[in-house]
Nucleic acid binder design. Structure first.
Lengths: 218, 218
DNA sequence: ATTTTTTGTGAGTGATTACTCACTTTCATT
DNA sequence: AATGAAAGTGAGTAATCACTCACAAAAAAT
């Protein structure tokens, strides 16, 4: 029920009145699960059908090709989940100036993303794996990033550079270091060493302190 | 010729007197190229045979299964190329104490890895992509890392902590931050934005400075 | 020079692949 | 209650898959 609501929201990208049948939701769930576990190329449509409890023909009734099914999962994840969440988070900061420091912003950002990734780990894994092989995904991601995230992030950084809180390196470098440091933590935490015992609270705070030390104007 | 020598050295893991025929080298070259481009699961053995200019049966003469071919490429890359290079680099530092600072060590490390990745990009891509789906690869990597790299890295960090150069955070955290920062740079540079115009010298130096600011004791 | 071993071949194998289509069932509209 | 549209089905299809094997050529060992 909880899962269903979540995955149903994903597909409602164009129409607001998208009504997914039970079987359609089952297909999406099975596809996400299997793609994340075995990878897109190693997953057969018959396997998805079996896991979803539908006939194989039902999948192709709704998605013309297997790749269409992949994109129906990945693209909405990008455009509907990642972008607005990030954009909203940034907007709140830049325009309402709610955070007093880059550090506070960082803390909100990393916690927001932490919960998002933890909740949507299979989706993130699929995106991460298939990103390299499907130009559509790569293009969609770069478009979403440059149009929504980058610009706001830039304004953000420049704001705190003006305030003298962070160092006067090129904005692009600061953004890259911020993202790779946070991304590196998540990658280690969720992909490379998921079975390791993590004290997430502590490690997040350390990551923030490390980032701030690296970026603070002195 | 240059390629041949390089790939031939890879397979010489057990026997010192490994003599690869011309066709065997062609198979390895074709496999590396295609796996890197399309991914292991999306590459057919017939495609490899065609590209290598051999009969399909020839592949299975030397590798029992398709997966054997993958492992014959990836595992030696790990055990013979990555580990010794890193270990040697670290050993030189820890035992002969050639570097005067963590910063100098960092600079040597990042430049060493930079050239390695640039030279072996297809191999790195294959490893990175298949790592998630093949337990053998993951295990081999973790084994190589904990046995060779981690221990030396740890001694390294502790040495410069004692000297008071870097901060007294837990060693594991410092190692994680060092590796993810450097890895994040390479990932952005070679995978996510390879077509971007990079001034590598400058960006490497910025990355080092960022890392040192984040880790320096103050 | 002859035998043995290694390397290479390519047609052939059954299994599996993504996808189709004629048909049935369910649902919404009147 | 009747009708049309949408959703669902599963046997069927051609193509492709990883892999085999009987045989040939080349190389090595005798």
């Amino acid at each position: 029920m909880d899962e269903q609501q979540w995955i149903a929201n994903l597909l409602k990208e164009n129409d607001r009145d998208a009504k997914l049948t039970e079987k359609q939701i089952k297909i999406l769930q099975a596809a996400v699960e299997t793609f994340a576990e075995k990878g897109y190329a190693s997953t057969s449509t018959s396997e998805i059908a079996k896991k979803a409890g539908v006939a194989e023909g039902t999948i192709f009734r709704h998605y013309k090709t297997k790749k269409d099914l992949l994109l129906a999962i990945v693209i909405p994840t990008l455009t509907k989940v990642i972008v607005p969440t990030v954009a909203k988070e940034f907007a709140k900061d830049v325009f309402e100036n709610q955070y007093e420091s880059y550090e506070d912003f960082l803390r909100a950002l990393i916690k927001n993303r932490y919960h998002f990734i933890k909740k949507n780990l299979p989706l993130v894994r699929i995106f991460w794996q298939e990103f390299a092989f499907h130009p559509e995904i790569k293009e969609e991601f770069q478009k979403a990033f440059t149009e929504n995230v980058y610009q706001r992030f830039k304004e953000m950084v420049e704001q705190f550079q003006e305030k003298g809180e962070i160092v006067e390196l090129p904005t692009a470098s600061i953004i890259r270091m911020t993202i790779t440091t946070i991304g590196g933590f998540f990658l280690t935490r969720f992909v490379i060493m998921p079975e390791h015992e993590w004290d997430d609270e502590v490690e997040i705070e350390r990551t923030i302190q490390f980032l701030m030390n690296g970026l603070r104007k002195r």
